[in-house]
């Protein structure tokens, strides 16, 4: 690398910063280590000039802009988030307190554009779709496990609502 002259005041030197041109295509990893996809772009705030968020091409789910508040570590190897993106709940099995499989999550209803989940929509073969408020959910991990006291009633498609 050619010698670089500096014109700075209190800013960090080059070796202490991240070269943004090297970030395109690096992995984006969730809190639990799930490799979500690859980084597409980094966005700066026009006024403050700090990083506002990143555009991520998530495997099979399309592009998502993830805000800096959800990023815990930024390096030239990967970006690590402090969350499990709730959009990944889609497709997971829903199991009730007794172990009965109720169906799969067909839609995740979030609070505005945040990662917080408000409701999960479940679909099951020959049954009408039903919404489950998040307060009925005990665990969201490899599957969604419901609490004991839910009053979810699934109806067959030929039953009147």
């Amino acid at each position: 690398m050619r010698r670089v002259d500096y014109i700075i005041t209190n800013e960090k030197r080059i070796e202490e910063n991240i070269d943004v041109s090297k970030l395109k295509g690096i992995k984006v990893i969730s809190k639990s280590g799930h490799v979500l996809g690859k980084l597409s772009k980094v966005y700066l705030d026009r006024d403050k000039l700090n990083v506002e968020g990143v555009l991520v091409r998530m495997n099979g789910l399309g592009k998502f802009f993830i805000g800096m508040s959800y990023i815990v570590r930024f390096s030239e190897s990967a970006i690590i988030l402090n969350i499990e993106p709730s959009v990944l709940i889609k497709g997971k099995k829903v199991i009730d307190y007794e172990g009965k499989i109720l169906g799969i999550v067909s839609k995740v209803i979030r609070k505005e554009e945040k990662n917080d989940v408000v409701k999960l929509q479940i679909s099951s073969f020959l049954k009408k779709k039903v919404d489950i408020p998040i307060n009925y959910v005990d665990i969201i991990s490899k599957a969604v496990i419901l609490k004991e006291d839910h009053d979810i009633r699934q109806k067959y498609i030929w039953q009147r609502s």
Binding site: I29, G33, V35, R73, S75, S77, A78, I79
Partner: peptide, 11 residues
């Protein structure tokens, strides 16, 4: 069989 990453996310 799971992947191991360092604290920077490097494989």
């Amino acid at each position: 069989g799971r992947q191991v990453f360092d604290k920077e996310g490097a494989f």
